[in-house]
Design a protein around this nucleic acid. Sequence first.
DNA 1: TCTGGGGTCCTAGGACCC
DNA 2: TCTGGGGTCCTAGGACCC
Length: 428
Amino acid sequence: MMTTQYALIDGNNFYVSCERVFNPALEGKPVVVLSNNDGCAVARSNEAKALGIAMGAPWFKIRHLAQSHGLVALSSNYTLYGDMSRRMMTLIGQYSPDQEIYSIDESFLRFSGFEHWDLTAHGQQLREQVKQWIGIPVCVGLGPSKTLAKLANHYAKKRPAFNGVCNLSVLNARQVDALLADTPVGEVWGVGRRLTEHLAGYNIQTVLDLKQEPAATLRARFGVVMERTIRELNGIACYPLESEPAPKQQIVSSKSFGRPVTEQRELEEAVSDYVARAAEKLRGQGSVCGALQVFIETNPFIPGEPQYHNGAVTRLAQPASDTGALTRQALVGLRKIYRPGYRYKKAGVMLMDLIDGDQIQADLYGDTYNDHYATDRLNDLVDQLNRRYGQGCLRRASAGFTQGWRMRRENLTATFTTDWNGLVCAHA
DNA sequence: TCTGGGGTCCTAGGACCC
DNA sequence: TCTGGGGTCCTAGGACCC
């Protein structure tokens, strides 16, 4: 008898792989994709990893490798990655009725009622089809819980013998434990740097060590999450598949500036811009927000420069999702916390107290549906145009025209899949 | 010159209630 | 000398994830 199985499918070096689809000359070369503002490496090709480039390595510390080792650095192109992700997830979803999209490059599948299937072969077929149809290399991990599927995916990536698909459920107990004994505990989903240190104090070093601990005892020391992790390592599924994404409880939009900003006017532009982005997401999930926080900060990495960071929470008289209402509120907050004489590096807004748009309570003075109708229609229209013609193509004047504070993206590739002007040109 | 952005869950402690 | 017990809500902070 075989129980429900879980698979984790994960794009290898996803952002780099997306870029390589449209620029095959990048194959075999060390490539990194940089974070916003070209700040640090957030994706690395295997060749870049081999050069010793760590996840999150600041670009200014590794840029010398461009000269010496031919390292290629690209600005992150989230429009492209998001669209490639959507295509990849749709295809992966064909392989099971139950799918959870966990992140931009990771997806869980649940296999219930697949007792007579060879899931390893199923995984191989998935892998080949995604490579052929989407152009992205993926690895597949299979096991009786999400935590084990995650771990299996790690083996699928790191151990060539698995040929990209590791199914822990077809190995015998001794083989599985041998793998776990050869893996540091920090590789487990949910065990980060701090917990790894803490566990080391109890001489728990490998995944097998953790698996063999009594779950209830470790709960007392480490909390309920650790108990679940141990159970999951023992094949007892504690985390269900979440096929419907839960609506967000808060929506944040914040970014560092491309250069230091000192003028209140420019901060207002940036905050207006971020509010518009956040409000679009808010409407996208059909929510309204009851409160809004705006924050600004200087650059803590410049020692000796006067530092200031502050935030202001303001509550809306009535929950709203209208960009205009939220922008006015945010600017009130910003004016409270703005202090001249500082070089600001970053600003952001956070929409809080989100509730479903249908559950909005009329206020004491009888605000009605009709009062909102016009602004709702306007917001819908703006959202549609921005989806069609690109983010920010239509925006409020308060978000500014020149936007000189915008982030730097010096090595940005084209949006190959979402923009006619970005189409790749093939030479005969 | 140059160090990302966007989330979640859990726990502990205080205020407050009956 | 005695000074309950149980519950909720809120917040801050810590830990994790990609």
